[in-house]
């Protein structure tokens, strides 16, 4: 893997930026070069949020991902906006609870996961984003599972450390799907 570009998009509050951080930290734990670039603006909750992540063996040039190898979409607006930008041969991980469309692109792999429904069924509310990372890890192994595990431990702030176990459960659930 020379360079993998990720674009994660959804609503503010869905944990888009956190997901990006988990992916970036996983790359770092694997000894790669990484970058994480959020969209930023006046919207905090409910607005659109997206985040570019790069993992590479080489120093990273532009951290802004315009043609992602992997897209993670968590709302319809983001899906509509970015599905056509996915690089040919790339992959889209789609929360099918929130997005009821299917892409007609045949040059990419689309994986539909009802992540939001799975999260509430398994008492993992708010962790649909992490379930999707689990699915992503299964279909496009961007890092070792151990690296992802360590990344979660790094990314969950100490005052929320009781949530580490739930996050790991969400990863595994996503991987099994």
């Amino acid at each position: 893997m020379a360079l993998t570009n990720f674009l994660l998009a959804g609503f503010g509050g869905q944990g888009i930026l956190f997901s990006g951080k988990v992916i970036a930290y996983s790359g770092l734990m694997d000894g790669k070069e990484v970058s994480w670039l959020p969209s930023y603006g006046p919207e905090m909750r409910g607005g659109t949020a997206n985040c570019s992540v790069c993992i590479s063996d080489e120093p990273i040039g532009s951290p802004l991902v315009l043609t992602p190898d992997i897209l993670m979409a968590m709302n319809l607006q983001s899906y509509d906006k970015f599905i056509h930008s996915v690089a040919p041969g790339g992959m889209a991980i789609i929360d099918s609870t929130l997005i009821d469309k299917k892409t007609d692109r045949t040059d990419i792999t689309a994986v539909y996961v009802p992540a939001t429904a799975l999260a509430s069924d398994h008492d993992l509310q708010g962790l649909a984003n992490i379930i999707l990372i689990g699915t992503m890890l299964k279909h496009a192994p961007f890092a070792d599972f151990e690296a992802v595990e360590k990344a979660i431990q790094k990314c969950v702030p100490p005052r929320k450390s009781h949530l580490i176990e739930a996050n790991l459960r969400a990863i595994k659930l996503g991987m099994e799907y």
């Binding site: 951080k21 970036a24 770092l28 070069e33 990484v34 970058s35 994480w36 670039l37 959020p38 930023y40 990273i60 951290p63 802004l64």
Partner: peptide, 10 residues
């Protein structure tokens, strides 16, 4: 600039 300020790298 805003990109360098907002982005994360190791």
């Amino acid at each position: 600039d805003g990109m360098l300020g907002q982005m994360m790298e190791p």
